[in-house]
């Protein structure tokens, strides 16, 4: 049963609250998932340590081509940020597609990652952007790629009773780079995705320098379509190559059947369509053409 709700003013204070809780204290930011999980007994906590008032953590910054999002940055902040729309549009679109505006006003992007749901929209986009999480614990600070944060469905490698993700950072996209987000959804708001795909491409002379293609929910966390990425690396920008990549992405996906959000077979059949659409859109944004 929840005994206390603390609002620290510094990361150090937050860490010390966690330490004082001896495993019963837990980090919270927006709390849109956590509070419901606590209410229905899916998770347990004696003390919640709210990070959202710590100065600096509400900001989105650009420094040396590196975009940094603080732990208190909400989905709506990201969706509406001119900086993100221009230099990481995939994330703006992904963040815009979560829940409803009220949820986006409350739920944080970092929370979306730490909560480790397989189809977490922002996390899928962040993996495509090659984002890295800044993790602080009593033993110090470390940087872990978002891609490596998943330990299973709904399970993060992070321990929210002792570790804090203070920021997430990723390189701003350059002029020759483009990104796109595709989401198969049953309605336009208040719906988890049946499928979501985030891609980032880097072009030179209408060739793919590289591509990052991330898809979900086709595994425990966001899944890189590495085979598809390999097909595109160094390849001409062409519909044929894109189709091949899309097919390769499908071969690497392992979705489950959901009684609520589509069978495995259906998801597998539509996945390449989304990959293709995302790649086509990303190419256009990177100044290429098919």
């Amino acid at each position: 049963m929840l005994q206390d709700y603390l609002i620290p003013e510094t990361v150090e204070q937050a860490l010390s609250h966690l330490q004082g809780g001896k495993g019963r204290a837990r980090v919270v930011a927006g709390g849109t998932d956590l509070l419901l999980d606590l209410a229905n007994g899916k998770k347990e906590a004696g003390v919640l340590v709210d990070l959202t008032r710590i100065p600096g953590l509400q900001e989105i910054t650009l420094e040396d081509d590196l975009i940094r999002l603080g732990a208190a940055v909400t989905h709506n902040q990201v969706a509406k940020s001119k900086l993100i729309q221009e230099k990481a549009s995939v994330l703006a679109r992904a963040a815009r597609s979560v829940g409803s505006l009220q949820i986006r006003n409350t739920a944080t992007v970092v929370g979306n990652v730490v909560n480790a749901q397989p189809a977490a929209d922002a996390a899928v986009a962040l993996v495509a952007l090659g984002a890295v999480a800044e993790v602080v614990s009593p033993s110090g600070k470390e940087y872990i790629p978002v891609e490596k944060l998943y330990a299973g469905v709904g399970k993060s490698v992070l321990d929210s009773t002792s570790q804090i993700v203070t920021r997430i950072q990723f390189p701003a996209l350059l002029k020759n780079q483009g990104s796109a987000y595709e989401r198969l959804e049953q309605r336009k708001a208040l719906a988890l995705p049946m499928l979501n795909v985030a891609v980032v491409v880097s072009l030179a002379d209408n060739r793919f320098q590289w591509a990052r293609i991330v898809m979900a929910p086709v595994g425990p966390g966001p899944v890189r379509a590495t085979e598809a990425e390999a097909i595109l690396t160094g390849a001409d920008v062409s519909l044929g190559n894109i189709e091949n990549a899309a097919a390769a992405a499908r071969a690497q996906a392992n979705p489950r059947s959901s009684a609520l959000r589509g069978s495995r077979e259906y998801r597998l059949e539509v996945l390449p369509v989304l990959v293709r659409r995302a790649l086509e859109a990303a190419v256009v944004r990177a100044g290429g053409n098919c």
Partner: peptide, 12 residues
């Protein structure tokens, strides 16, 4: 729940 039951929202 309202999340699972797919009645149209204002965006639909």
């Amino acid at each position: 729940s309202l999340h699972k039951y797919l009645l149209p929202t204002a965006e639909d």
